[in-house]
Amino acid sequence: MTGPAPLVLLDLDGTLTDSYPGIAASARVAFGTLGLPVPDAAALRRFVGPPLVESFALFGVAPERVPDAVAAYRGYFRETGMWENTVYPGIPDQLAVLRDAGVRLAVATSKPEVFAGPICEQFGLAPFVEGVFGAPLDHVPSTKATVVGAALDALRPAGQVLMVGDREHDAHGARAHGVDCLGVAWGYAQPGELTAAGVVGVVAEVADLAAGVLAALSAAAAPGAAPTTGR
């Protein structure tokens, strides 16, 4: 790989780790604490990816009750839920291939950074990335675009930039900074969600992640293409 090293921003939940069990358990605690009906398991998958405040609003929690829902969720998540999580098999090997190919890696997640950092440390992801960028805690407004912007400001990439994620929020947040997004199929997107969000492609299997990223970077750098460099 010639020229400045490309930077790949990696979503966490649904892209690197299967965090659904802990997120769903935390959400059940929150709905139960508020005395609200608990959504079924399929519906709770929609909690994975978007900012938490947005997710509770999506499920019809009244605005004045959202702070209590978040507090109940965080109480369980901080102690137990964040560790009910596993790295998708094969992810470390794929990250190693990308690093060996000269790609810079960082995590960019809507999960609060105070949780994302320890999760990456605990599950062995931290050695592969230059930084872990996440949202502030819930009283500070934040979107995926906010997180992507913080990563770009800190890492100051000189080469291409690509976002990799499993939800439409990843694509929209990246596009706000002129960055393409490559989708992954093993996460929590609804059918057709990633294509509708304008991803440059969808990687079907974890084993194909590194090849998919390198192909997307190569395509963006081809003659006539407009490489995305972030801003």
Rank of each mutant, 00 (worst) to 15 (best):
A126M: 14
A145D: 14
V179Y: 00
A211R: 15
P227E: 14
T146K: 03
F115E: 01
W186A: 05
A108W: 01
H172W: 10
P141E: 11
G131A: 05
L137S: 14
L217G: 05
L125K: 00
A106P: 03
A106G: 08
A225Q: 15
A108M: 06
V179W: 00
A221K: 10
S110R: 03
L137F: 11
K111F: 07
L217D: 05
L217I: 11
A226Q: 14
G149N: 09
E113C: 08
E121T: 11
D208C: 08
Q122H: 14
G124H: 08
L209H: 07
A204Y: 08
V164I: 08
L214G: 09
L162N: 00
V107Y: 02
E168I: 00
H139W: 10
R167W: 00
G134A: 08
V148A: 06
P141K: 12
A207G: 13
L98R: 03
V164A: 02
A101L: 12
R104Q: 12
A126P: 06
A225C: 13
V202Q: 07
Q94D: 11
F133Q: 02
A196D: 15
A96R: 15
A96G: 13
V213R: 02
A220N: 14
V202T: 14
R104W: 03
S218L: 12
C181A: 13
R156C: 13
G212T: 10
